[in-house]
């Protein structure tokens, strides 16, 4: 599938309906059952004739963003962060608010008016507001409401050599990988779950894993990629264009060594480029899958994304395609009974 539409959809944690509606349409005809739960997780099931371990995939539909908290007397819109966004990326950006995507800007005091001391410190995120052009509270409230989601206005586009730039690649790129995987047919039962509220505590995956009770859980993510100036090689985590990243451990999960080895073996056999995710910080839906019910074997495969959690991230088309290839080959291999764990 093409990444543009899914990157430009808006879905801050708790408001994932646009993404869910879109995915339902994309998956129609490719899976035998499509079903949502009360939190908003979307389950796409592909049962298999043969018996085998149930493999659950989790890719989250939500993205980091903001919620409108209040509107002040000048008509300025105040907001709070949903998920982790560094305050440094907020100033001087255009945003879209609420269901009607009302445009607004996050301005800052002109540099001319900042004291020398002010300029040495980062902006205080609590003092940043969104200007929508309303002259008063009443006027502003006709356009936006407390609780409205706020996202950066970023268009998806081609970037550099074989790369894409866009908003919310974490984790719409994981969703796209999952859609592509679900278009194949396998000898094992597969449940693809598009989860909600990952960015505020992997909450959708918690209930989804309980409902599915997988034998094997595979988390699909867009992950940190810091192969940029100022970062030593050992702190890069991943490198763009070097293939999908296989996790070894993060703050929530020690990824199952058997699955990790099998992923690597499959990648080697099929000559699919891969890399390890060379860090142990962060966390994702894998933790919830591994701990649901009586537990599951969990692993994570990610597409490296530079500038994750900012207004615009960068990912590689080849990493995306190789992630799909790797996971398809992984499922086929399990279907042939090759996974010994």
């Amino acid at each position: 599938m093409e990444l543009r539409s899914i990157s430009e959809l808006r879905g801050v944690s708790g408001q994932e309906h646009e993404v869910r509606t879109y995915l339902r349409r994309e998956l129609e005809g490719h899976v035998s059952e499509l079903q949502s739960d009360t939190l908003g997780n979307l389950f796409a099931r592909k049962p298999a004739a043969a018996r085998g371990p149930t493999v659950m995939f989790a890719a989250h539909m939500d993205e980091v963003g903001f919620l409108v908290t209040a509107v002040d007397k000048d008509g300025m819109v105040h907001f709070r962060t949903v998920g982790g966004i560094d305050a440094g990326v907020m100033p001087s950006k255009v945003v879209q608010i609420g269901p009607k995507a009302v445009p607004g800007v996050i301005g800052t005091k002109a540099v001319h008016l900042q004291s020398a001391d002010d300029r040495t410190k980062p902006f205080d995120p609590k003092k940043l507001v969104i200007d929508i052009g309303a002259g008063s509270k009443e006027e502003a409230l006709k356009l936006v409401q407390p609780g409205d989601q706020v996202t950066f206005a970023t268009s998806f586009g081609a970037f550099g050599n074989g790369l894409h730039k866009g908003r919310a690649l974490d984790d719409r790129i994981g969703c796209a990988v999952l859609v592509e995987v679900l278009k194949g047919s396998y000898q094992v039962p597969v449940v693809g779950v598009f989860t909600v509220q990952e960015e505020v505590g992997t909450r959708g995956a918690a209930v989804a894993s309980y409902a599915v009770r997988p034998d094997i859980g595979v988390c699909l993510e867009g992950t940190v990629c810091a192969d940029i100036p100022g970062t030593e090689e050992d702190a890069e985590t991943t490198r763009i264009g070097s293939g999908p990243a296989i996790s070894i451990m993060d703050a929530g999960t020690i990824h199952h060594p058997g699955l990790v080895h099998h992923l690597v073996a499959v990648a080697r056999r099929h000559e699919i480029p891969y890399q390890y995710r060379r860090a142990t910080r962060g966390g994702n839906d894998a933790a919830r899958m591994s701990l649901a019910g009586s537990g599951a074997k969990a692993c994570a495969v990610s597409v490296p994304c530079r500038y994750i959690h900012g207004p615009v991230a960068v990912a590689s088309q080849s990493d995306f395609e190789n992630a799909v290839k790797l996971l398809r080959a992984f499922l086929e291999s399990i279907g042939r009974g090759e996974l010994k764990v």
Binding site: D86, G88, G157, A158, F159, G160, K165, V224, A226, I228, P229, G230, T231, A235, R281, R306, Y307, I308, V312, V314
Partner: peptide, 13 residues
């Protein structure tokens, strides 16, 4: 004309 993105060291580093 090339699209570019201004980056800096990410917060976790």
């Amino acid at each position: 004309s090339l699209p570019g993105i201004i980056g800096m060291k990410p917060p976790h580093i």
